[in-house]
Simulated scan of single mutants.
Amino acid sequence: MDHKQEHRVLVADDERVIRQGLQMLITRHYRDLTVLEASNGLECWNVLKTEPQIRLAFIDIRMPEMNGLQICEKVKTAGVAVKMVIISGFRDFDYARQALRYGVIDYLLKPVNPSDVLRLVHEAVTTPLPATQLNERQERLIIEEMRRWIHDHLHEDMTLHDLSRRFHYSVSYVSMLFKKEMGTGFQEYLLDCRMQRAKHLLLDPALRISHVAQQVGYTNPKAFSIAFRKVCGIPPTEYREMRGRETIPEVRYDSHQYP
């Protein structure tokens, strides 16, 4: 099969260095593919609707003339047969959620990982993805965004209903997603996250137990101690004393480095 004649890839980004970088990466590994470029949203849309050989499009979410989400909406409405990947410098789930509704197969954050680009080209051009795999990829993206949000808000009161309202999905769907992707229920996952965060905070002897409790969503220190003991087997005071006797290197906790 002559891929150059039948399959093409589009890279749309208003930053020339990004367009050329992706173009060089793809053609270096797939020399029989043609990689087209678009420097703004309108140009991107015009190429997509006039080039039926395009199988995959990498689309920057912020471009002049027309943004990436508007392009994805037009592609879905017009029924253009192309797999779309959004490239963005933003972690805001509002962008990702809208992109998913337009049928985007992946959402890559800048700086883009070259292995992700090559994987997507291989899947879309060489071995097209079945619809079931696309759904699974979208669900993994959804659960990752939910996990990021949870870890940024462990100090707040949080329920499954709160999470479903925040991300505009039904309670039953969010519950199913956690069990499917994480192998545990939402409450179990939340409790584990809070206790892992508490362990890191307890390594700082300057923090009072009550303050640690507040940082992981407990207004009542006694309730926190009961929960900590249930999960970890010992009270937080004993955990701190035990770890304090050990030689422990400095620990820095990044809220995005979730378990």
Rank of each mutant, 00 (worst) to 15 (best):
N220S: 01
E238T: 14
Y218M: 01
R229T: 03
P236G: 11
V216P: 00
P235Y: 12
P235H: 09
D254V: 08
T237S: 13
G217D: 02
P249S: 04
F228H: 06
M242D: 12
G217T: 02
T219N: 10
N220Y: 09
R243F: 14
E241L: 15
E241A: 07
R243Y: 14
T237E: 13
A227G: 13
V216E: 00
N220K: 07
P235S: 09
T237P: 08
F228S: 05
P235R: 00
V251C: 01
D254Q: 13
I248W: 04
R240L: 07
Y253M: 14
A227S: 15
E246T: 10
V251I: 12
P249V: 02
R252D: 14
P235E: 13
G217P: 00
K222Y: 04
R245Y: 01
S255N: 12
R229W: 11
I226V: 06
T237W: 08
P221L: 06
D254W: 11
R240Y: 10
R240P: 06
E238L: 11
P236C: 10
T237D: 12
G217L: 02
G244R: 03
E238I: 15
A227H: 02
I226R: 01
Y239C: 05
I226L: 03
S255Q: 07
D254L: 05
P235Q: 07
A227N: 07
P236N: 15
T237F: 10
M242L: 12
Y253D: 14
K230Y: 08
A223G: 10
F224C: 05
R252F: 13
P221G: 01
V216C: 05
P221V: 05
I226K: 04
P249I: 04
E250F: 08
F228P: 05
F228I: 06
E241V: 08
V251D: 09
F228Y: 13
I248Y: 11
T237A: 09
P235V: 06
E241S: 12
Y239Q: 01
F228T: 09
A223Q: 14
V216S: 06
A223K: 11
D254G: 00
E250G: 12
T247W: 10
Y218H: 05
A227P: 01
A227L: 00
S255R: 03
P236V: 02
T219D: 15
T237Q: 14
H256E: 14
R229A: 03
Y253C: 13
M242N: 13
G244Y: 08
R229C: 02
M242Q: 14
K222F: 02
S225P: 04
D254K: 11
R252E: 15
F224K: 02
V231I: 11
P249M: 02
R245C: 07
S225A: 05
P235W: 06
T247Y: 12
E238K: 15
P236H: 01
I226N: 05
E246L: 13
T219L: 11
A223I: 11
F228M: 06
C232I: 10
R245T: 07
E241P: 10
G217R: 04
P249Q: 04
P221F: 03
R245D: 06
Y253E: 15
K222G: 01
D254N: 11
I234S: 03
T219A: 15
H256L: 06
G244S: 00
N220V: 10
G217H: 02
I248P: 12
G244P: 00
Y239W: 07
E241I: 13
G244Q: 01
